[in-house]
Design a protein around this nucleic acid. Structure first.
Lengths: 262, 262
DNA sequence: CGTCCTCTTGAGGATAGTCAATTCCAGTGG
DNA sequence: CCACTGGAATTGACTATCCTCAAGAGGACG
């Protein structure tokens, strides 16, 4: 029972890049603080403006940048297993705020653990590095969509990526799932007004691409939705360059093969 | 003379987070491949679609995502000292292309060097990790501006951040500098059409905020420009958690103090 | 049965895109 | 010295996406 939450919530986010050794798993289990819970709409960590690291165990969250006039941009959707707060480490006055998009459970991670990870667990550090690059690439894609395509395509792309991530463990997009976001959250994700988002949502519904009601989303026509969004499936890289695991189990060249072999 | 380029082109990008030990500097000097040059508009590395790492020595570059219809989004501006291509490591089929915005000089970095860095130079790895987080945060800010403010403010913000980065070494924004970008590049950076960008540029000129002509940009009123852009100055974090340098020179708690002490 | 949150719809207006034509300017060659 | 050339910058007219303001409807919950 103590193994369960770790296998499924935190370690799975690292394991796509290589199987973890027992030492690595044990260390990961040792660094997280006590469980905390936050309600939808609350700031994870209690207050904005100071850096903190949190491992998301349950629920959906988002990093948001809130402008002086109160408007906000949601950067992306964070799912269980994600490590929240890394970008804030790089800047003296953090720009972003961690918001709970649904009721969430998190565990704090002390920043000192990062130092220990880089010193004593180089392979874990490299995996975390890769995950961060992946999230950076996701932000780049969202930036591109924001600048180059219209709101309806942006919304479709957001939903496609979300269904892909939710289906990661099954190696297939998840087509029917709990959907805690409000329309205002979607509007702040794709950068349009609530009024306009509503119209865009209606058009996707009218086209028979999605069904959204009662906090549940069903993707009615995944092929046409992806076609409309005009994006390719997202495959993680084969990370064949990672350092050896400390105990020598498994060849690094075999790392990541579990997900990528079709 | 062999020391010079490294001090000013590659190592300066890492040193804000802590002074480098001789070992670290020597290792950094050993990993880069031969110098390559590319013309403005060319794809650094020769062709899009395959991951590669390059250290930018001279000129301006940009990571771009090019959509099937030919439109492109420039993610950000890369300056000498930047390491290009990191996000591409995380995804099997890279989304982005590295473009030369001016004539550039780069040196290739083998991916295997990353593995060695994580294993044998943990402090350098942690610094590179932090730099990546900083670039991720920059992408997040640009995403926010794209979604929440209008084109003229986006352009102002872009120029403010650029002047800050160009003046990093002097601890003050650079207000008068060579500016190799074409208006089409600016348009693809802030996500508007060339026609519209031209109008926005005119309005900034008419307001007396900037002077741009003949491949040179002068910021005429830095205070009002920043006020118009509505952004705070960007200060790197004090990275007081980095692992110790291998030879024990200098305390980690003093790392980064050189830039942040006013 | 009211209250609050959320979702929905409409009208008018501002921001930004497309299309098209013109000017400017640095090279380049006659 | 001057026409030719191609990239870059500029301008205008028209259209479309998107925003603001406003009002109303549905639903959960006390």
């Amino acid at each position: 029972m103590t193994e369960g939450p770790y296998r499924h919530k935190s370690v799975t986010r690292l394991s796509p890049f290589g199987n973890l050794s027992p030492d690595e798993v044990a260390w990961l289990k040792s660094i997280a603080g006590p469980m905390q819970e936050w309600e939808r709409g609350q700031v994870i960590g209690g207050s904005a403006g100071k850096a903190s690291l949190h491992l998301l165990l349950e629920g959906w969250a988002s990093s948001a940048i809130i402008l002086p006039d109160g408007t906000r941009q949601l950067i992306g959707i964070n799912l269980p297993g994600d490590l929240l707060g890394l970008p804030g480490l790089s800047i003296a006055q953090p720009l972003d705020t961690l918001l709970a998009l649904s009721p969430v459970k998190v565990r704090g991670i002390p920043v000192a653990a990062l130092s220990e990870m880089f010193s004593n667990h180089p392979r874990l550090a490299a995996m975390l590095f890769l995950i961060s690059q992946e999230e950076r690439m996701r932000a780049m894609e969202r930036l591109t969509l924001m600048g180059q395509v219209e709101a309806d395509v942006r919304l479709a792309a957001l939903l496609v990526r979300l269904s892909e991530r939710l289906g990661e463990n099954a190696d297939a997009p998840c087509l029917d799932f709990e959907f805690p976001l409000r329309q205002l959250d979607l509007a702040d994700l794709i950068g349009v007004s609530l009024t306009h988002l509503n119209g865009v949502l209606q058009s996707l519904r009218a086209a028979g691409l999605i069904h959204l009601s009662g906090r549940r989303l069903r993707i009615a026509d995944a092929a046409r939705l992806r076609d409309f969004a005009n994006i390719e499936p997202w495959w993680p890289a084969e990370a064949d360059w990672l350092p050896d695991p400390p105990d020598g189990k498994g060849h690094p060249s075999a790392a990541g093969s579990t997900r990528l072999s079709p």
